[in-house]
């Protein structure tokens, strides 16, 4: 067998993939770091500035307010989106086949639409004159709550968050549901015989046994939410003012709109470290016990 897997064969199988991955995902970080030490306008280096770009970022108001917005959206996703998805999955497990198939079709639908489409749809939903939200508010007599949602700096970010959470609620629900399907039914039978109710079963059996899926969904949702960018471009382009810029949009804005590529790179690297820290934390604290059936 040793001859069968010759060293040459090993290299032939490994090198192309390793090279492509290393070039675009890993190597790309290094020029980014070098650029972050420069005053770079996207075309040429205009002088070395050391760690000045990092200092500028860490003392910039927009950098920190964009952090608050980024993590605000993340909290929306983690505290509203994921629990609702989990609840929907638990419900989906106990309903009949027709409803289940309808829901499955509908749930995955938003996740295949492009962000340009979703952004535009929600511009309609939040439209001041005839959008769904304001029409609804007027219909139930809450005329005072009618708002120009997306041009109000206080609510623009929340609207983007709503669109984002909406897009992935169904997707995550289906992921949780497939996790539920992998739990052996004997567990439930035993618990039902002991007289446990829905909430006890969910708390003691379902959710602990969903650990792996929970970890997968949490990692995906965290990376995805932190990396959210397209919806902002389409819905508000970061505005009004800078009131809906997330960290990534600030990075884009500073580099591609203001030609401060060095500064943009510094933001990118700081944020990259944050993303890796979050992924490691989730990996460390969620589902660290091995489950054996």
């Amino acid at each position: 067998m040793r001859k069968f897997y010759s060293n040459r064969a090993k290299l032939v199988f490994l090198i192309p993939g390793f090279a492509l991955f290393s070039l675009f995902v890993i190597y790309a970080i290094f020029p980014c770091f070098i650029m972050s030490l420069q005053n770079h306008n996207g075309v040429a280096n205009q002088g070395w500035v050391g760690f000045l770009n990092y200092k500028t970022a860490l003392t910039s108001d927009v950098f920190w307010s964009s952090h608050i917005r980024t993590y605000g959206i993340l909290l929306m996703e983690l505290l509203i989106g994921i629990p609702v998805s989990l609840l929907l999955a638990l419900m989906l497990d106990r309903t009949n086949k027709v409803v289940r198939n309808i829901f499955k079709f509908a749930a995955l639908f938003p996740s295949i639409l492009s962000v340009a489409v979703i952004g535009k749809m929600f511009l309609g939903v939040f439209n001041t004159d005839w959008g769904i939200v304001n029409t609804f508010l007027r219909a139930i007599g809450l005329d005072g709550a009618v708002n120009s949602w997306l041009s109000n700096p206080k609510t623009a970010m929340i609207c983007i968050g709503v669109a984002y959470v909406w897009q992935y609620i169904g997707y995550n629900a289906i992921l949780f549901y497939t996790g539920l399907k992998s739990i052996p039914p004997e567990f439930y039978e035993a618990a039902t015989l002991d007289g446990a109710n829905f909430f006890q079963i969910s708390k003691r059996i379902t959710i602990p046994l969903l650990q792996d899926m929970l970890k997968y969904v949490l990692t995906g949702a965290t990376t995805g939410t932190l990396g959210m960018y397209g919806l902002i471009s389409v819905m508000t382009a970061g505005g009004p003012g800078s009131s809906s810029r997330t960290v990534l949009y600030e990075m884009y804005y500073q580099s591609f709109q203001s030609s401060r590529f060095g500064y943009g790179c510094a933001i990118a690297l700081l944020f990259l470290i944050e993303c890796i820290v979050w992924a490691c934390l989730i990996n460390r604290f969620v589902a660290h016990e091995e489950i054996k059936y």
Partner: peptide
């Protein structure tokens, strides 16, 4: 594990370096 790094980096973070590359 090295390849796993690709899963935890949002593609948009590397927008500038990938563009330059």
């Amino acid at each position: 594990m090295y390849f796993t790094i690709g899963m935890i980096i949002p593609i948009a973070v590397l927008m500038i370096p990938v563009y330059r590359l």
